[in-house]
């Protein structure tokens, strides 16, 4: 128990003094997960909108696959991405193993299905009459897609937040493909594991508090957006 007290005291000290290790891990987390989320949105929102509107054979299967993607185990994603990126792997020549790019790729695979699936649901729930109206008014398919996305923008914002929430607290994949390099690929979650392994509980707790605060902020924003969209 005394470690908890000492840990908290050290955590506060490190937070107040903006400890370099803590700031590094926080900024790495924000850059990597922010990029992965932006990419998830860039892919997931158009694809999700299309999936929400389209009616085709096998659509149920595609939705099921997307929903499976929501529950992808990070370590499995990490393993497959690592195998591809190892020098002996198919993409070995890119030299991406143990880099932030590798982490972005892994987190993108984890985050995109979340954004895609939630966007599809959001678009589906937009009044179907809108579609008819748009067609009657002569909108091109691209224009219609854009207007639908606009109509569903708050739920889509929620989807983006959920995507961010999924990747910022992820560890398995990031550790396996990023290698936890100090000052580069060491993010909040992998730093917590490392510091715990070294017995540096103060640092670990400080990092944990920041991660919790981040996740809280994201969820607060999501909740706010949801409530507003309902009003």
């Amino acid at each position: 128990m005394e470690f908890l007290g000492q840990g908290l005291a050290e955590a506060i000290h490190r937070l107040v003094t903006l400890d370099a290790d803590v700031v590094e891990a926080l900024s790495a987390s924000l850059v990597v997960s922010g990029t992965a989320t932006a990419l998830s949105v860039a892919i997931g929102v158009p694809a999700g909108t299309a999936l929400g509107l389209a009616r085709f054979r096998g659509r149920g299967l595609v939705l099921t696959l997307v929903n499976t993607g929501l529950g992808l185990p990070p370590v499995v994603v990490g393993l497959f991405v690592a195998i591809f990126l190892w020098r002996s792997g198919p993409l070995g020549d890119l030299n991406l193993y143990c880099t932030r790019q590798a982490m972005v790729i892994a987190q993108l695979i984890l985050g995109a299905p979340t954004v895609l699936g939630l966007t599809a649901i959001a678009v589906q729930s937009v009044d179907p009459m809108l579609r008819l109206q748009l067609r009657a008014l002569g909108a091109t398919p691209t224009q219609a897609l854009w207007l639908f996305a606009r109509e569903a923008r708050l739920p889509i914002l929620t989807a983006a937040m959920a995507g961010f929430g999924a990747v910022i607290s992820e560890i398995g994949a990031s550790l396996m493909v990023g290698c936890n390099v100090k000052g580069d690929t060491r993010i909040l979650t992998t730093a917590i594991t490392l510091e715990t392994g070294k017995g540096e509980f103060g640092t670990a707790i400080a990092l944990g508090i920041i991660l919790l605060a981040l996740v809280f902020a994201v969820n607060a924003a999501t909740t706010w957006a949801q409530q507003r969209s309902r009003a």
Partner: peptide, 18 residues
């Protein structure tokens, strides 16, 4: 276009490390 943008972003945002 979204996929292309995605790839470009991966390499630009994380540029220095690569």
């Amino acid at each position: 276009r979204a996929l292309l943008l995605a790839l470009v972003m991966i390499f630009v945002t994380c540029g220095p490390a690569a």
